[in-house]
Amino acid sequence: MRHLLSTKGMSRDEAILLLDIAEDMADVADREVKKLPTLRGKTVVNLFFEDSTRTRISFEAAAKRLSADVINFSAKGSSVSKGESLKDTAQTLAAMGADGVVIRHPASGAPHVLAESGWIDAGIINAGDGTHEHPTQALLDAFTIRRRLHGGAARGKGLDGVTVTIVGDILHSRVARSNLWLLTTLGAHVSLVAPPTLLPMDMSGWPAESGFDLDAAIDAGPDVVMMLRIQQERMNAAFFPNSREYSRRWGLDDERFGRLARTTIVMHPGPMNRGLEISSAAADSAGSTVREQVANGVSVRMAALYLLLSGDREES
């Protein structure tokens, strides 16, 4: 794998291979020595143009467990915020010998630009670009669902026939986009539930149903309910009136949670707004995978780093 920029266009075989390798990586966490020498001598740069401590430390842990050297480059307060271009930053990292760059950027497509630019030869992992994609989050979500459903026999399997309902700010969610492509590639059925203002204007090309009614979606009995974080700033832009109304119509509150089957998997990419999009009872329930998602994130990112940084660079 030359780069990991999106889940759109990722084949089923590629996705399953990555998830299977992540299973092997997860096994390492149970060992006495939780570290592999695989990427010894390789340098991974976490290039973050947006604050995201969770994602950064997940990638950092993944790279370190594979023995890579990790450099954290936060664009805030650096020369980047003083007007240095992405090009100059990339060339600086290239000069420092970065083998892999994990990039988080507020502009959709920035990782793609970095990968295609010729400014740097490193493998690029998209750690979230604008409102476009966040492929490793989707991979860890798929990994988490697959483990919940198949346990130790998960290797080699897809998510065929699994019904997943994603609820919340679909419009601005890179997590929703990456999950949409990945989960459907793995055979799942995805439906999206959101206020009309928070659904993209034209989803004709999306392999998903969409609707506005969370109660109907709950009563349809999905295998997985994925709640997205609602950003406070949306309230100021007339996407919905206020948090109380949002919570009442589109929040997974105790009553709605109680109507879900006990086997339903409840997911949230974090950080959660408890009491807004998800109630504490739902977030802390046995069906909740919130903490597993964090642990699995490291395994999936180890797998991604391995696939990116092993093999000849000529490989495409």
Binding site: S108, M201, G205
Partner: peptide, 18 residues
């Protein structure tokens, strides 16, 4: 706004220009 608002802007996650 970054590009024409429609199916493609929805997919690319770009702010649409209606």
């Amino acid at each position: 706004a970054q590009m024409n608002e429609g199916a493609l802007s929805s997919e690319l996650g770009m702010v649409g220009w209606p």
